[in-house]
Structures are given as structure tokens and as C-alpha cells.
């Protein structure tokens, strides 16, 4: 179990989170759904320890290795696709193992032909695929994905979703997936946390989504999202 307890956070005068509590189950896909501006990215950044909250406790995240797919690819422009993935593995594996892993993951996201290209010569979707491959190639216990399919068209989104499922089957890990897209959430997640209001509150938790009636879950989520 990973848990955020009584978290409060203020940006200037804006109270983003107040006594916020959430707990995630291990080794499943936990999804946070909510309208833009509700504080989803802030929660992700607190979990990733990129932001320190004003108050509250974070439990079960000590000594955990984490990888993160950001909204933008965040690739190093002066390195090739291969070197971008290799970069995060350098302190983890020896050269030989790294070579195998990097090539494996580049294959999995179907970018082998482009592995020597610089990020600037890739399309947005391809760059995001590299970012996903990097996150999966890194041996993390926790994977955070913050709207990774945001600025992409439907075709690319579907391609990435299938890459994602393929990659996830290679190694079990806890995923925290953030989105404002209800279809995406229902398609991928095991547990969905519906967030609303400012400061953010969990209005409903849907468990075992993949085993439940998905269209029902989707309907309920949409109802809550819009009203």
C-alpha cells in the first residue's frame, strides 16, 4: 500500500490540496481522473517527490524507485533516442546488459529504425513513445504517467495504448495513471479515483474496473465528471 495522508499544499494563495488522503494498491493500475486544474499533476509530483507538501505524510514510498512519463516527452535533444534511454540506465546496469535492454525496449515501441535519430527529428507521438520506453526500461517499482496521451490524435493514442499494455506485461509494477479522459481511464485501469472540486476531493472510487461492467463505470464517471 502507498498512501498520502492529510496532505495540504498551497501555491501562493491557491489552496490546491487540503487534508487530502489517498491510498494506492500495489501492482495494479491506479487511475486518477478529474477535470483540468483539479490538482492531479500536483498529486503525481508529490508522489514522485518532486514537490514537498506543506503538511502531511507520505507512507510506503520510501526507498522506492520510480519512473515517470510526463505530459511532454522530456528527452535530451543532444542525445540520440538510444542514448536517451541509455542515459537513465547508466548507474543501474553494466554496459552489456544496458545494450540489450535499450534495444529491447526500442523494439517494443517499434522505433528500431530511428534509434540513432535525435528527438528533434521525431514526431510528437514517436517522442512520447521513447519517453514511455525509457520509463519502462528503468527498473522501477512505481510508474507514474501524467496524461501521456494528451496532445495526440486518436490513431497515435491507440498505438501508444497498445505499446503501454505490451510493456506493462513484461514486468509487474504499480502504476499511477493520471488523465482527464474517461475512456482511457476505463480502458486501462483497475482502480479509478474520481477527483473534483478545489481543493481536490475524491468523490468516488471504482474498484476492479476490468472485472466490472465497463460501460456502467463509464456512464457513472461521465455523470460525476460533468455534473
Amino acid at each position: 500500500m502507498m498512501e498520502l495522508k492529510n496532505i495540504s499544499l498551497k501555491y501562493d494563495d491557491l489552496q490546491i490540496l487540503k487534508n487530502f488522503n489517498i491510498s494506492f494498491q500495489k501492482n495494479i493500475i491506479n487511475c486518477i481522473v478529474g477535470p483540468s486544474g483539479v490538482g492531479k499533476t500536483t498529486i503525481a509530483n508529490i508522489i514522485a517527490q518532486l514537490i514537498v507538501p506543506d503538511e502531511g505524510k507520505i507512507i510506503g514510498l520510501e526507498n522506492i524507485s520510480c519512473s515517470y512519463v510526463f505530459q511532454e516527452p522530456r528527452l535530451i535533444d543532444w542525445y540520440s533516442i538510444y542514448d536517451n534511454i541509455d542515459f537513465v540506465l547508466k548507474d543501474v546496469y553494466n554496459a552489456e546488459k544496458r545494450k540489450r535492454i535499450v534495444n529491447d525496449y526500442i523494439d517494443l515501441v517499434e522505433l528500431s529504425e530511428y534509434k540513432d535519430y535525435k528527438p528533434s527529428s521525431l514526431s510528437g507521438g514517436m517522442a512520447q513513445r521513447v519517453s514511455i520506453a525509457r520509463a519502462f526500461a528503468y527498473p522501477s517499482d512505481l510508474l507514474i504517467m501524467d496524461e501521456p496521451f494528451k496532445a495526440l490524435d486518436i490513431k497515435l493514442k491507440n498505438e501508444l495504448l497498445s505499446s503501454f499494455i505490451k510493456l506493462l506485461s513484461k514486468r509487474q509494477r504499480t502504476v499511477i495513471f493520471i488523465t482527464h479522459d474517461i475512456n482511457e481511464a476505463v480502458y486501462l485501469s483497475d482502480t479509478i479515483y474520481m477527483l473534483k472540486y478545489n481543493p481536490a476531493k475524491i468523490v468516488k472510487i471504482f474498484k476492479n474496473v476490468q472485472e466490472s461492467d465497463k460501460s456502467m463505470v463509464e456512464k457513472n464517471l461521465k455523470k460525476m465528471y460533468f455534473y
Binding site: 524507485s65 515517470y68 542515459f87 537513465v88 547508466k90
Partner: peptide, 16 residues
């Protein structure tokens, strides 16, 4: 800053 956050996530050592 985005790249620096990325480095922090993947625990890249300071020299690199």
C-alpha cells in the same frame, strides 16, 4: 527544468 526533474526521478548522479 523539465529535464532536471527527469534526472531527479531517474536518480542520475550529480556529475552526469
Amino acid at each position: 527544468k523539465g529535464l532536471l526533474q527527469m534526472c531527479k526521478i531517474y536518480k542520475i548522479n550529480g556529475f552526469r
